[in-house]
Design a binder for these strands. Structure first.
Lengths: 322, 322
DNA sequence: GCTAGGCTTCGTCAATGGCGAACGCTAAAG
DNA sequence: CTTTAGCGTTCGCCATTGACGAAGCCTAGC
């Protein structure tokens, strides 16, 4: 007998709302006795009291409050499940859905989406920022058309296309002991407290993975949801962080930050585009994939130009010296 | 008869993993016939086919894939519920838990936490960035000690303390039609596409609320999780946004952005500290509340100083003229 | 053609869950 | 102080549900 089920959770929410078993029973169309038994069984299953019984109704215990929180969340998830499944056969959607991770959103997508919408001005883009592993699952499950995520997260079954590369650097306050290093290994950072993205982010996973390989703890002190949050906390001396170099660039002037290149191989990251089946995508989504994938080629051309410019400057210097 | 229950969801995950009703039945200790009936009943309830039956096992339909995604999420939530409830009586926690919304994290908390940890260097702070309504629920349910969230979200039952104020402004690309305005009403922005935070953010709720009052649609084109993401998209002409003025300041130089003051009353926002019962908090959490609440007073002093400085400059000007 | 593997359907029966009735407790009203 | 009303608990009854074994169907491999 398992009493933890949706009927009981819904009933518990009704009890919490009405503070009365009797009124909740009416609301859920059950006899009071059945309600009493369900809650009593649930308390037995969870080995804790959930309600203070009073002569005129009930009050939630602290455990009851915690359960209520979970119950609401799970009933909401159930609604989402039903909504999703009920719509699933109504397959045609009128726009492009894109889920991208934080690095892509900050570093590359503003430009790429601007170009795309300039070319296709009538296209509606539904873009959501998500964590890499969430994106992979969403693509796989048809919750989004296109995903952009970190390449080191396994994405079997998806069609993968190169998108961009970025380089991770250590970010510290300018007066930090590590700030004056020319470069360093991740292992040298583990004596300090970190500011990072959420536990489930791919960036966090990379750091966690290497700290485990090194058999050293990763002291994650504060977790926020944006690169900006990380930079501001670092600026104030709350810890150090590891971020894409490109994402830090805009803070270098306004915040007292230093960046130090990491020599670890995994510090060079690749972002990829993932779709479930390119041929099965609506035309406009396919066009967006092509556009995003070709952005990588255009970006490579830009870098080549920059290198030529640098060579040209070097040549100029040589000429001057001659 | 409701077949959508945890046993069935768990069974469905087992089927998806093993691609076989027979093996899933063994794994979950059920007869094959019972498994077959459960899945068939579930398909009837959801009015869609979830599995392709093959001579050697089963394959998930697209609807089956979507259900699998939801099933995993809900079973994970169930684990969290059980873990939370099982720990609930182990009340003592060794550090301070703080949940704060994006505005607080970006605009104020780096400084305030830096001050606090300078004074109490041994304190471990577990800080999570969350949406305002999530924070209120977390405080209420004992999932965090201290919450910092937007004051206009109802938080009955919590002990509320003033923290900070911020002012919302319209943010546009510099060449946007609205960019040259000296000020404007929110109603004047609704002809344009918006870039914003997530649907559940308090900022989004404010905008949604006023657009509904005005009986005009809010055209939310792209949703990201950080102010930086919003600013970069706006810079590239993807739309306009409404953000705290203070949070935009650091982007004004590096991005081609303009800010226009909003004349609407709700554009002046207040952030508050919320706890469940101040007296019941551990001492160090109480000290943090006091520190954060007094930051507001210190900030007011700073503004007063700035006003005096301005008066002094005005006086200087007057003296010069005399 | 036969066998093995896998899923479906049917009938049986034990277990589950909802009900009404009876009981106990407390607060408010007379 | 007694009675009444409101509310939650417990018990026994019985209709419904859900799991089972057996039988049947389909397909692939030998």
């Amino acid at each position: 007998m398992k009493r933890l089920d949706f009927v009981t959770l819904k009933l518990f929410v009704a009890i919490a709302d009405s503070r009365s078993l009797t009124r909740a029973a009416e609301r859920e169309h059950l006899a009071l006795a059945a309600v009493s038994k369900r809650i009593s069984d649930l308390e037995t299953q969870l080995s804790t009291t959930l309600l203070y019984r009073r002569p005129r109704g009930v009050e939630l215990t602290p455990a009851g409050h915690a359960l209520l929180h979970h119950a609401r969340h799970m009933l909401d998830s159930l609604d989402h499940l039903n909504a999703d499944l009920s719509e699933y056969s109504v397959g045609v959607r009128g726009h492009v859905r894109l889920h991208a991770n934080t690095s892509a959103v900050i570093e590359f997508l503003p430009d790429d989406l601007s170009d795309f919408t300039w070319r296709y001005p009538q296209i509606r883009i539904d873009m959501q920022e998500r964590l890499s592993h969430e994106i992979i699952a969403a693509v796989r499950d048809g919750l989004t058309d296109i995903g952009i995520f970190s390449a080191h997260i396994p994405a079997e079954g998806l069609s993968i296309h190169a998108y961009r590369r970025d380089r991770l650097v250590l970010v510290t306050a300018r007066d930090h002991p590590l700030a004056s290093r020319e470069s360093l290994a991740f292992a040298d950072t583990l004596d300090y407290d970190f500011i990072g993205l959420e536990q489930d982010s791919s960036l966090h996973a990379l750091m966690q993975q290497d700290s485990q390989r090194l058999a050293r703890p990763l002291r994650m002190r504060i977790q926020v949801r944006s690169f900006e949050g990380i930079c501001r906390m670092i600026d104030r001396g709350m810890g150090i962080g590891i971020l894409p170099a490109r994402a830090v660039a805009s803070y270098r002037e306004s915040l007292a930050l230093a960046t130090v290149p990491l020599i670890d191989e995994w510090a060079e990251r690749e972002l990829v585009i993932g779709v479930r089946d390119l041929e099965a995508l609506p035309l406009i989504a396919r066009q967006m994939v092509e556009h995003l994938a070709s952005a990588s080629a255009r970006d490579a051309d830009t870098e080549t130009t920059a290198e030529l410019t640098n060579d040209s400057a070097a040549l100029t210097n040589v000429t001057t010296k001659v």
